[in-house]
Design a protein around this nucleic acid. Structure first.
Lengths: 222, 222
DNA sequence: CCTATGATCGAACACTTGTTCGAAGAGCCT
DNA sequence: AGGCTCTTCGAACAAGTGTTCGATCATAGG
């Protein structure tokens, strides 16, 4: 793990990013004031602006750095691995590993994706799109290899991301399974579902094109 | 569909809730001002406070009413159905149906769950807990009936909710599958994964207790 | 030791926020 | 029409917001 020479400036910036992420994660970005950040980092309010030029850029730095690391490590991990299923397993493991070890940052990344706008939003989003495409292509490849039928790859992709990213809403490291078991569980759950979706059980699942529901136009009967 | 006699008051309140939900869904709760709501609903700023006594209560009314309807309709739908798998299918279909037909409200329900606090938070949360418990018990029952092994029911429950609730981040009704197909896909994906998680394919999944990753303590190398 | 540069700070500004209050309007029964 | 309750409104307030600016502090290099 090549630790690049970190100047005093870089070290302090990272410290600020980390503690800010913790505050954002617990109170939410918009209801966190710069004064909250100031208090948490033990810096003066104006002193913070030496490291970024707006609250929004602070959010961006957290998201961008966090996402960059996830993607970078993911690339390193998958390099040289050819089998798409193995690649997927590694990707899931990497993703959840980050989630558990950097819950604050990952929560900020997942939950505050739309709290940012303009160019900064576009920058983060392009990284996100890369990452999503990677997974979508992987699933497409697998579906092709294994002749998986009747599964919408886009739905499957976001179902997978939903499974994983939702964990910031419930996962409790002191009460739930550890990372290895968590990712093992989710990998099995998803992969078995994806590969075996042509009815793994004796009793076939009705594919359910017909709806069991009365038509509900809207909750609010206008 | 028994439409209870709705007073002028109730009608207008529902109108306010619906349009507020739309604004909250697009801008986020905290960055929506009461003046935004006033503009969108074409009411005066102070006039709004005739219907609720704080912005937070407005959020609560949206969440509570929306959640109440989902749960209520879910109960009605499941009434009389015994087979746990059928019950689960209906529940998923109901849930996603609501998501698609009431995206704004469901997004506010999912995304702004922590934007509320105190007693109001507790009220919404108790409904949520009921709903989650219903699913968790259902999965436990299914796991028992079908002798599913090695699957953590809690993880499976939240994986399912993650799959479904995450859809507010990507689902586009004009571009993606319709509700019936969406819920069919997700039902298959989840159920096949849950039931067949003891390796549906010839080539066994390594359960992966061992990690492929170097230990990453933190993104931020402190 | 002194100076130039990198960091930090207190105080203030301009603005937006949620909420209140008393008065005025609308709708309906007799 | 009169009177009463339900509904709506304009104007204002107090508090909190993100950000700026000029001045200070620390520190390392000559």
């Amino acid at each position: 793990m090549p630790s690049e020479p970190q100047s005093r400036y870089d070290q302090k910036l990272l410290h600020v990013l980390k503690t800010s992420a913790a505050v954002f994660a617990s109170k939410g970005y918009h209801s966190t004031s710069m004064r909250d950040i100031s208090r948490a980092t033990k810096m003066s309010l104006s002193g913070l602006y030496y490291y970024f030029k707006s609250k929004e850029e602070l959010l961006f730095l957290i998201q961008d750095y966090c996402f960059g690391t996830v993607i970078g490590d993911c690339r390193n991990l998958l390099a040289g691995v050819e089998d798409p299923i193995s690649r997927l397993k590694l990707l899931i493991e990497n993703h959840l590993n980050y989630f558990v070890n950097n819950m604050n940052e990952m929560k900020v990344l997942s939950h505050e994706a739309n709290s940012i706008s303009g160019d900064l939003f576009r920058k983060v989003n392009s990284k996100k799109r890369q990452y999503v495409d990677l997974v979508m292509n992987l699933l497409g490849e697998i579906a092709n290899d294994r002749k998986v039928e009747g599964v919408d790859v886009r739905v499957a992709t976001f179902a997978l991301f939903g499974m994983m990213n939702w964990s910031y809403n419930w996962y409790n490291p002191r009460k739930d399974l550890d990372v290895a078991e968590l990712s093992s569980q989710m990998t099995r759950l998803f992969l078995a579902g994806f590969l075996g979706s042509k009815t793994p059980d004796a009793e076939p699942l009705e594919t359910g094109r017909e709806s069991h529901l009365e038509r509900t136009v809207s909750i609010w009967q206008h």
